[in-house]
Design a protein around this nucleic acid. Sequence first.
DNA 1: AATTCGGGGCA
DNA 2: TGCCCAGAATT
Length: 290
Amino acid sequence: MDTATEVRTHILDWYEDHFVEFPWRSSRSPYHSLVGGFCTQQTQMSRALETHARWLHAFPTVANLAAAETSEVLRVWGKTGYPKRAVYLQRAAQQCMERFGGEIPSELDDLLSLPGVGPFTAEIVRCFGFGLAVLTVDTNIVRIFGRVFEGDLQPIKDTSKDRIKEISEQFIALGRTDLINPALMDFGASICTGRPRCDECPVSDICKAASKFISGQVPEPQRKNKVYAGSDREWRGKILELLTRYSRPVSEKKIRKILSLESDEQTQRLLMGLEKDLLVSRQNQLVKLG
DNA sequence: AATTCGGGGCA
DNA sequence: TGCCCAGAATT
């Protein structure tokens, strides 16, 4: 039995005892999966689940979403983070209406052509929405594969994408991706985490990185965070939050005053950035959401 | 290849 | 405080 087969068997056994349902997994709805894919991009499951439920309540169908006001879309997205995702998701829905007869496509290239849809989200839709035999290679699966098969501590940085793809294809060839895909994702989210729990891991005796972790080695940060306080990101969030609270457009002057922005130049720069990202629009010094 | 883009949770 | 989180687009 080769290593991939053995790892797969152990992970599937683990999954039997740690199965968790997610609303976009069993529903086998391309739309629910698409929303799930967007919600989970760089976002913890707890918050993604809340956004997903809120979103489907507000926009039950692709047609509803496509026809909605963008300001409403941004309000429903709320403080989920990366609000551009909300705009992309609505535009993706609009393109599905225009280009794909109101249906979400199942072809990889078609999905990838939608705004805000990359390899991860596309495969989420294909795996959970359409039940196709694919793996959604997310950060969790990269971590597991890079560690178990290559002995890398921080595979996001250290393991080549080609190698990850090779291993993925091995797993796909072994079948039942409908089981092994969520099993791997959940396993990576709870056992093979950034600081893995090798003492609870069912494949630690196979994993090429386990001895390194057990002897106390620590992975390098996958990316160094910049200071958030006072950053454009923080200001953009404050401006959007302000516009979300008001039901009508707000003047640029008022925005600057309420938020105590340093200068008109800074205010203009931030608003231009938000406008470029289609998060706000401006007319006659008045700023509105969407 | 590096940077940008939120916001919250947790050690 | 620093790092992380079911990524994707832009430069």
